[in-house]
Design a protein around this nucleic acid. Structure first.
Lengths: 227, 227
DNA sequence: CAAATATAATAGTAATACTATCTTAAATAA
DNA sequence: TTATTTAAGATAGTATTACTATTATATTTG
């Protein structure tokens, strides 16, 4: 349970920022509005100039918090994974049945996230859109190995590891638990994207959620018959 | 079989370029070297200036072939999918057994590609690296819907549809054939990436290929016992 | 009240992502 | 053969991006 409370206030790797945005009003406005702006115009068009105009501040002030927009993206996506990790621990720690636990984790990592006002300045719904559209860009770079060494993807890997362990708890002899876990997490976001933009290559739509597919995929793969 | 021969000389949507790069020596050098340079320095650092320096030409000349580097990326990735589509048709048209056919398609879309000198100026091995590291960036943009309307992703969708049909041939009652097909194709590239950069969240390594996992995933999901 | 700190305001730079124009060289058509 | 089209090289220029640096002002804290 200790892991849970360490993460409870959504703590992110402190090398991701120059000055902790949670430590000031301006910092919170930067995070809050960067989510809105990035969702609105996309990561490529997003600049610190546009953001600072939006919040009536200056480029130089934003640069005092984040080195560049790539670090900001990793900050935001790490925040998301920390939040998911928290949800996973919260909703599964009392579940003793391995299959039920696995299903719960899959639900959490693949469900559509709507806004939630538990964490005031962060709009989880809009952040979820960023996850769908921009998450891959945080690691598909020439700097991945350095970033990874700095621990920027630690929380993401922890979420996947939890899923992997839940898979193993159900089927200890399954030979690809890590690959299945990483596939499901990636695929969940991808199916959400396809639903919006490439409906011919997905079965997800208004009535079929990506999480339905994801659950079915894992349970069939592990040969769990109790569906 | 007609589809096959239409695609035999790897034809790509002609809105992707201003002047067909296959129509001139310079055009071929642009394509050839853009693959090498993009693999080397990554899509973000890649510029038409650097490319034109590499081929001893000028920025303006490169712009006569491609509108911008994003169109070039879609051109390269479309070329890849057309090539994969060709491989799929070539290696499956004589297979009558549905399960054998499905396994063959999965192998083709998930195997590690090495250089092949059948198409002189294109290094498929290097292009495969680009697919692993940059493919998602071709559609994770605010312009996806416009690009999709222009048919830029048609060949990619055709490959996925072929896989979907092969899935349905094996198990017509399976409820998520399109999602499974798109997941496998995406996951294959992703597992190759993880193998290189995040080995803790994949089971793929020097001895276990992503295609092994992909085949197992689909066959288990469809409950094909003859493994 | 003094000192430290945060932020705003402003300026400046190199690189990027283009567009435009002009010249030369080569291919082709009359 | 000459005229004409076309391709490509050479050069220049612009707005935007991704920063860095400096100074001034306002606020907090000791």
């Amino acid at each position: 349970m200790q892991e849970l409370f360490q993460n409870f206030q959504i703590r992110v790797n402190d090398k991701l920022y120059i000055k902790d945005p949670e430590s000031s009003e301006l910092g919170k406005r930067i995070v809050e509005n960067s989510i809105l702006l990035m969702d609105e115009i996309g990561f490529e068009s997003f600049t610190f100039k546009k953001l600072s105009d939006k919040i009536n501040s200056t480029e130089a002030s934003v640069y005092r918090y984040f080195e560049n927009k790539h670090k900001l993206l990793i900050y935001l996506t790490s925040w998301y994974w920390a939040w998911i990790d928290y949800q996973v621990v919260l909703h599964t720690y009392s579940i003793s049945n391995a299959e039920k636990k696995l299903e719960t984790i899959i639900s959490i990592v693949s469900q559509t996230i709507q806004a939630d006002d538990s964490f005031t300045h962060i709009d989880e719904g809009r952040l979820f859109n960023i996850m769908i559209n921009e998450y891959s860009k945080s690691f598909l770079t020439k700097e991945v190995d350095d970033d990874n060494k700095d621990g920027f993807f630690a929380i993401y890997k922890r979420v996947i590891t939890r899923l992997k362990e839940a898979i193993l708890a159900v089927r200890p002899e399954y030979p690809f638990p890590a690959s299945l876990a990483s596939t499901v997490v990636e695929s969940a976001l991808h199916q959400h994207f396809l639903k919006k933009h490439f409906h011919t290559i997905t079965d997800c739509n208004e009535s079929v959620e990506p999480s339905e597919f994801c659950k079915n995929l894992v349970l069939q793969t592990l040969n769990v018959t109790s569906q």
